[in-house]
């Protein structure tokens, strides 16, 4: 903005030839400037700064001490909780990404065919996606509470269980519930994106297929699914990135809304990388440098998994 303002009087006074010489060259840069400045200030600088921070020992208040790559060495060789958090995150991603994709696709296909109530059905399915995470945390911790939860009440009422199951304190129970929360929240979003993809598939392709005698499941497998490939790649890559940053659901399930928050769930089986990062910087410790090294390690991991998931899902001709 400033650059533009300071340029205005200069442009008015300068000769027409100078104007021509400067103008056309300058405009693209000028238009890009606001974004570049904002990016540099709010993205690039923090990214560089947190790398610098990761080479220091710092509690946010005292003097920073330069310690080289010690934080990274400690993190990768001597911090069982970090390895565990990474492992947990990957396990939970494996639980929710494929399932959300399949369910989202099926739901989208089914909704797409609906002639009546399509809008209503879409809206209902997208509601969880726009629900505040805190409310989701509340809902699920109420549902799965050991003593008073609705799920246990039903299970015991119908005689399937003698005593309620302690969902939230079971290593696999906790992960499954978190996966369920993510699926429940994202399903509507996946559905909408898939439906958008279906809308752009030309109808004549379907008509041609119909002429050739293809119907139902066959059309879905041979026409719809391949033509949705780019959409699927987008969803896989973005959900891998989002999945590695998993934090809201586990944190809120384990009392993010109450006074005594339990970090990491039962025996840290629900501890995710970001939760570990938050715990190191603000909850158990105040090690900003160490936490930055977690953030940077996660950045590298995300880059690696994004490329990997792209390579695995993208069509052959796009893989270069």
């Amino acid at each position: 903005m400033n650059a533009e303002q300071s340029l205005a009087p200069a442009a008015a006074t300068s000769a027409a030839s100078r104007k021509r010489r400067w103008g056309p060259h300058l405009w693209p840069y000028l238009f890009a400037l606001p974004f570049v400045l904002a990016y540099a200030a709010f993205q690039l600088y923090p990214v560089v700064y947190s790398f610098v921070l990761s080479l220091h020992d710092w509690n946010g208040i005292s003097e920073k001490t330069y310690i080289g790559f010690k934080n990274y060495v400690q993190l990768w060789t001597n911090d069982p909780l970090f390895i565990k958090s990474l492992w947990n995150t990957l396990i939970m991603m494996l639980m929710f990404i494929p399932l959300t994709l399949i369910l989202g696709l099926v739901l989208a296909y089914w909704t797409f065919q609906l002639t009546r109530g399509k809008r209503l059905f879409q809206t209902i399915n997208v509601l969880p996606y726009i629900t505040t995470p805190v409310a989701i945390g509340f809902i699920f911790s109420y549902l799965f509470d050991w003593q008073t939860g609705l799920v246990n009440l039903l299970l015991t009422k119908f005689g399937w269980l003698q005593e309620g199951f302690y969902w939230l304190q079971d290593p696999w129970g906790s992960r499954a519930i978190i996966a369920l929360m993510v699926i429940w929240r994202n399903l509507g979003y996946f559905m909408i994106i898939f439906m958008a993809g279906m809308t752009v598939i030309p109808q004549d392709v379907y008509e041609a297929a119909k002429m050739d005698g293809s119907t139902g499941l066959h059309t879905f497998r041979k026409i719809t699914m391949p033509l949705l490939r780019n959409i699927t790649v987008f969803l896989v890559v973005t959900s891998v990135i989002g999945g590695l940053q998993l934090f809201d659901e586990p944190k809120l399930l384990y009392g993010g809304w109450s006074g005594s928050a339990q970090v990491g769930g039962p025996d840290n089986t629900a501890l995710t990388v970001i939760w570990k990062f938050v715990d190191e910087s603000f909850i158990s410790n105040t090690r900003f440098g160490y936490a930055s090294s977690i953030a940077y390690s996660l950045f590298v991991i995300i880059v690696f998994f994004s490329i990997l998931s792209y390579r695995l899902t993208a069509p052959k001709e796009d893989k270069r």
Binding site: W146, S260, G264, G265, P266, I283
Partner: peptide
């Protein structure tokens, strides 16, 4: 202190179960 309390809070539900 807060580390010890945090660890206890994470562990006692398991000991209850």
């Amino acid at each position: 202190d807060s580390v010890v309390d945090g660890v206890f809070n994470a562990l006692y539900p398991l000991w209850t179960k």
